[in-house]
Amino acid sequence: MQIQLNGEARTLEADASVAQLVELLGLTGRRIAVEVNEEIVPRSVHDETRLAADDRVEIVHAIGGG
């Protein structure tokens, strides 16, 4: 299936979970936050949250700024 990840198309195994996507990206354990279709997906439910085709996923982190 295809999802939008940080604004870009990405192909993912059907039924993948948020936790699997995070792991695939090498971000497990990193300080990030995940939003799917403009709703926060709390870290505590990354495992059980399944992604669907055309989901819009945002993964963010802290960077320098004033």
């Binding site: 990840l5 940080n6 604004g7 990206l25 090498g26 971000l27 990193r30 300080r31 990030i32 936050a33 945002e58 993964i59 963010v60 982190h61 802290a62 960077i63 320098g64 700024g65 004033g66």
Partner: peptide, 20 residues
């Protein structure tokens, strides 16, 4: 200390220094 929130650069070296 204030900081900004931005999209994570995917594919970037995961070991790169993090602001936090």
């Amino acid at each position: 200390v204030t900081f900004a929130v931005r999209r994570t650069n995917l594919g970037q070296d995961a070991a790169a220094a993090n602001l936090l």
